[in-house]
């Protein structure tokens, strides 16, 4: 009965979607906002990558809100999961090839992540993508050898520092430009150079470090969760009395 009801619902929803999709224009010229941004992006931001211009210059406030969602999710994940005793892991160490490969890839992943972050205003890429690469650099060795200690405190420090930098850059722009998160207080610079496009590279650097630290600590959080075979960690007496 339950299966039948859900199938009925799905067919109805599929019909609804197909009607909606059938009426959507495809390949039309961008909407007026998109067209305006494509036309004005270079004068307004100096960033070659229009996506970066949208993300940090035109919608910097939204990106700050998005960072907040990421932060809340990572914090909630840390609060929900209990921690296993340090260094005690049921997961076995991977073989030699994975271990050596993970160690070998670490510096290259760091360089690639930094490159992608720092060139976010010039080429495809940016803080989100580079941050994911940075996080991979840290948790690939961790996955190869689950017993090793994860640098949780360093991660938390980097995350807090990067988040504070992002907000401080926004507050600093109040005094220079009069608006919160106004990104152009450093001038647009010479188009196409690494140091150009105002504070966009700085914002992307802070964003990338924060995303990388956040994703890395999320994976570490899940990896540190006790399996269902592990003994329950005794809760404090106060929690039991409630």
């Amino acid at each position: 009965m339950r299966q039948f009801a859900s199938l009925l619902f799905l067919f109805g929803f599929a019909f609804f979607l197909s009607v909606l999709v059938g009426g959507l224009p495809f390949g039309a010229a961008p909407m007026q906002v998109g067209q305006a941004i494509v036309e004005q992006n270079i004068e307004a931001t100096g960033a070659a990558n229009a996506v970066t211009g949208v993300l940090l210059a035109f919608r910097g406030m939204d990106t700050l809100g998005e960072l907040t969602i990421l932060f809340v999710a990572a914090t909630a994940a840390g609060m929900v999961v209990e921690r296993r005793k340090h260094g005690v892991s049921r997961d076995s160490v991977a073989g030699f090839i994975l271990l050596a490969g993970a160690e070998l890839m670490f510096p290259f992943l760091l360089i690639l992540g930094a490159y992608v972050i720092l060139h976010g205003h010039l080429t495809p890429g940016g803080g989100f993508q580079g941050g994911a690469i940075l996080a991979a650099a840290f948790f690939v060795p961790f996955l190869a050898n689950p017993g090793r200690a994860f640098q949780g405190h360093a991660m938390a420090f980097v995350e807090a520092f990067a988040g504070a930098t992002f907000i401080l850059l926004g507050i600093f722009s109040i005094f220079r430009e009069g608006d919160f998160m106004a990104p152009m207080f450093l001038g647009t610079g010479e188009f196409g150079q690494l140091v150009s496009a105002g504070s966009l590279p700085l914002l992307y650097l802070a964003l990338g470090l924060k995303v990388g630290a956040e994703l890395g600590s999320l994976v570490a959080e899940i990896a540190a969760a006790p399996g269902s075979d592990d003994p329950l960690i005794e809760e404090p007496q106060a929690a039991k009395d409630l």
Partner: peptide
């Protein structure tokens, strides 16, 4: 050029999805 706004939206949506 294609519209940059949906790309920027999707960029944030992917990260939110992972979180």
């Amino acid at each position: 050029m294609v519209d940059p706004i949906p790309q920027a939206l999707v960029l944030t949506a992917i990260v939110i999805g992972v979180a």
